[in-house]
Amino acid sequence: MTRPIHTLSFGAAFALGTALALTSAVPTQAAWEPTRPVEFIIPAGPGGGADIMARTIQGIVTKHNLMKQPMVVINKAGGAGGEGFLDIKASAGNPHKIIITLSNLFTTPLATGIPFNWKDLTPVAMLALDEFCLWVHAETPYKSAKEYIDAAKKANGTFKMAGTGSKQEDQIITEAIQKITGAKFIYIPERGGGAVAVQLVGKHVDSTVNNPNEAISQWKGGTLRPLCVFDSKQMPYKEVIAEGKSWGDIPTCKSQGLDIEYLMLRGIFMTPGATKDQVDYYIGVFKKVRETEEWKKLMADGAFNQTFMTGADYTKWVATEEKRHEELMRAAGFLAKQ
């Protein structure tokens, strides 16, 4: 009884649909442009570093009208970001989906064994690299990384290090410190960088390896102190933050006898099977984003390493980094059991 009328109404809808499609599809064959809202996936929860960066980009794109279609930010944090990566992987051929990545691009598939690899995605661009610093509470006497490590060795494995997540970047750095120095730490995973910093402020742990922007406020407020930065050279930012010091005054960990270098990718990928036109379109958008004042401010506040890469350079960098993560994680025993 009900069926004929339904098919009828749908028939009408179909007819209307084709008519609309014909009129609206005025072809502009010059270069590819999005024809519907672009979903910007964040494989991490709200409030974290990747989330803040993605939302800043969304704000910049909206404010300066850099895209004709709206950009929609969606958090897919489940399974240490695996949810977001699998979603992109499953959306092959949909050019209206991009994802911002952090180190979990490598660590999540390696630690959990989910069926995903960065090669499933189409690389677009590296936006920046996030630095890591070694932080202690300002009321502790340690003035250098060396003093702190010596104290940790004496404490005989009772010093606690808090970090974001388990078997991810913070724990990898902690493992590397243990391996190089022989000091032992109890690693305590927390949900996000902000919570990690607060645990240190509340003296529930002895140190953290927070990103600069996660702990800048506590440094300014006189409760935390950075000891060294895990980069090959000192950061270029000269603006004074606290105690008469700037980000640029923090020594490298290498100079303190901690020969560890770790930077976290903040990069963009697309769905599998994207064409060159589509990738170029997004590269164009992000180049414009990088030129805005808001972006420069975000970079300076977070003391980011502003390396920008696209194309073959980017792919090569990611491939090297994946191999490095695999080695680091194998050495630490973090790989998923097959």
Binding site: G47, I52, Q218, K220
Partner: peptide, 17 residues
């Protein structure tokens, strides 16, 4: 958490300061 992100975008640093 999302409001926090907003504060950062407006150049306001939440925290003791």
């Amino acid at each position: 958490a999302v409001l926090l992100g907003g504060l950062l975008i407006w150049g306001l640093q939440p925290g003791p300061t």
